[in-house]
Write a protein that binds this DNA or RNA. Structure first.
Lengths: 203, 203
DNA sequence: GTCTATACTTAGATAGAC
DNA sequence: GTCTATCTAAGTATAGAC
């Protein structure tokens, strides 16, 4: 606790700075020297906290997983609500909600980092699959199938829907720091269009 | 013409091998030495044909643009067809069609390469914007707006549709060589679902 | 816990012979 | 047009002082 400038202990500072820089320019193009410079320490000091650069990335992925678990909606609860509530209301509740804006920003950066890196890096590929593709499918798929079963919504190609939805979320993450940067209202409009595919039955 | 083994002159061989390797592992992770090895020449020989590694990539982008121009559908023709033909038939004709399978494969690889690289590389970003995002928007947007104007299809959020469609195409390219690899029927099912958002009017 | 100094490796690129 | 040999720069990582 001796020499901490700013809010965070050095290890956490390194992780925060790395997440930001990785998401902006990609893991490969960020050097350990640069991270150290922004943190305000010597580049060698990074290796006191992390055995390797790769390990900074892995730590970020672990951190993301731990935080995400805290805000993941409960599928069984959603399936219960499907019986009584309006379809759209249940679907709204199937999304992930973060309270802390600062935390959300960092988690988004980690997601972007993985999206920029997935090719050829099994670790990043696994991370992305678990945190975008599987997460969406594991919640949305049973929920939509149940809503169809209950005849609350009309039957449609659920698997293609999940795929298109996942790809949309993935792109939004991957393109977030590029020329194609989108603000949230535009993103929401695309989501709304996709959800308009789901049509309630008339009863 | 002296020492050519195989079908292609050395310069074209280099481009073909580079396109394949770049699309599989990303531009940065492929070395000029590896390209040379696969082509069957010494790594220094690459620099007889290209002033730099970066220039191989630029040449691939130029090549893609030239080839794409040849198969780009004519917007005015499509707008004329919109007056008389069924909406779906016109929309089907708005897609790009390649005859040569070999060529299509190479062009896809170039697109994937750009999708893997866009972050932080203005050249790749511009290429992607021109060849996925703008191409889709420039054809599909006026066509859809015209079909709505003609009351052949119901009005809907065309811009969000273009965005979701573009993102879907982009993801399909970017994820093509990963664990998320999809075969064409799955991709087409997603496209069909998206096009189902467009509903013809009843008259 | 942070520093200075430096080792090690990889990859893009060049010079010049053949 | 292709080769051998080599230069140079950059980036990860380590040793050891303070």
């Amino acid at each position: 606790m001796a020499k901490q400038k700013g809010k965070f202990p050095t290890k956490e500072k390194i992780m925060r700075v790395a997440a930001k820089m990785f998401s902006e320019r990609g893991y490969d193009k960020v050097t350990t020297r640069e991270i150290a410079k922004v943190v305000g320490i010597n580049s060698a000091s990074i290796y006191y906290y992390f055995p390797s650069k790769e390990d900074i990335l892995k730590s970020l992925y672990r951190f993301y997983n731990e935080e995400l678990r805290k805000v993941c909606p409960d599928l069984n609860e959603l399936l219960r609500l499907a019986e009584t509530d309006l379809p759209y209301e249940v679907l709204m509740k199937s999304e992930f909600h973060y309270n802390d804006k600062d935390m959300r920003e960092m988690l988004d950066q980690i997601l972007v980092t993985a999206a920029l890196r997935f090719c050829g890096d099994p670790e990043s590929e696994r991370f992305l699959r678990e945190n975008i593709f599987d997460n969406i499918a594991n919640i949305l798929r049973p929920l939509l199938l149940r809503l169809i079963e209950l005849k609350k919504i009309k039957s449609f190609d659920v698997d293609s829907f999940i795929k298109v939805m996942s790809y949309y979320c993935y792109s939004a993450a991957a393109l977030n720091n590029s020329d194609f940067k989108q603000d949230i209202p535009e993103y929401q409009a695309g989501m709304a269009l996709l959800f308009s595919i789901i049509t309630p039955t008339d009863n």
